[in-house]
Design a protein around this nucleic acid. Structure first.
Lengths: 205, 205
DNA sequence: CGTAGATCGAGACAAGTTGTCTCACATCGT
DNA sequence: ACGATGTGAGACAACTTGTCTCGATCTACG
């Protein structure tokens, strides 16, 4: 989804090469700025200077600063979405799923996007929708592994999608956002083992 | 710690009643603005208008916008810090500790402060120090309960402070920041039970 | 290859913001 | 009552934002 009139793929018209170039330059520069200085640096002026593009050009493509922000966030996530294949044990599948997530949070602009969405979701409804869509997507991988495990009788059937995500993604996100430190492989394994131990099928207290 | 010359308590001089009034008005208005529109709304102009105070007065007390932000964040947290007494079982103590934290995150400006710190910690070193100091404080309560439990042989001695916080505060924070929804009492209990089940002393895989 | 039409960068412009001063006036502590 | 100090209003230059216009350049398409 693109927030601007020429949404790049859906419409039949071919996009002018100059337009494509400008959009790419602006969005790339926008991602850089986002990572270096946070979402508040994504003004038309800063982005135009950074992208070496006329200020009017940025206004032409994104009359509304909010849509510029949204498009930069989406551009930052492009290519960060991977599909993990589930073939091994529940533990290995979960570790693989969460490792992919941890890597995205560790290195790419993903973390900055998430933080921006958390910060702005309270204020703007468009950003809130984006935020919900994105985190739902992030939950999906974990949930598909957990659901299979529940079906196979390995995990507590009381578990729901949000709960499973909270218990697995939550601790990893905490380490990156509130410690703050990069997430290591051992962290992922600790989280997975504690999660599995904490939600075995015959749940007794 | 206050970022401005007259730090309010340390120095012997009594603070002028007019200064106290201005500071209070600005900081209160700042907290309101922070909650309603996020940290980026904390400019001298907006805050002055909101506080019904001269713009020059705000500049007088906080020449640097960063220090205004820091003082507003600290003012927002004042009175939010509670000490929980630990008298019952490990489970009850942990639930009490995390419930207090969940309540702060649910209702007050605490959540907005945390999100601001996460967002700005990457960019500014003063904010980063504040961020670390604050989250360390938040970990302390949980850790004191967990450490006692380890000493009594109830929990895995491998647990460390950050790990314990990640496994307990992490899931709660996830619910508030990434779902996003208020944290309910049942969420806290689920987290505590899974944590205790996942880290019992005779840890075998 | 040539042309009609679109995008581009540069810059003009009004409106608003930021940071700094100055000044008359109100309020404070003594 | 008085001297000292904080306050609000406003002037001011420098900068930012959003909107236009213009000539130069590039693209798609015949």
């Amino acid at each position: 989804m693109s927030a601007t009139p020429p949404p790049q793929s859906p419409p039949g018209r071919v996009e002018d090469a100059r337009v494509a170039r400008s959009r790419r330059a602006v969005l790339s520069a926008g991602v850089d700025l986002l990572v270096r200085e946070g979402w508040s640096a994504l003004t038309h002026q800063r982005v135009a200077r950074e992208a070496d593009v006329g200020r009017a050009t940025v206004y032409r493509h994104w009359p509304d600063p909010k849509h510029l922000l949204i498009d930069v966030l989406e551009h930052a996530l492009a290519g960060e979405v991977r599909t993990i294949s589930h073939v091994d044990s529940t533990r290995d599948d979960l570790v693989a799923e969460l490792t992919a997530l941890a890597e995205a949070i560790n290195d790419g602009p993903t973390f900055d996007v998430i933080v921006t969405l958390i910060e702005r979701a309270d204020v703007d409804s468009d950003l809130r929708r984006f935020h919900e869509r994105m985190t739902r997507l992030a939950r999906r991988g974990v949930w598909s592994v957990v659901r299979s495990a529940i079906d196979r009788g390995e995990l507590d059937p009381e578990l729901d999608e949000v709960g499973a995500a909270a218990q697995t993604i939550g601790p990893l996100f905490y380490r990156r956002a509130l410690v703050p430190r990069r997430i290591r492989r051992a962290d992922v394994e600790t989280v997975v083992d504690a999660f599995l131990d904490g939600h075995r099928t015959p749940r007794e207290r």
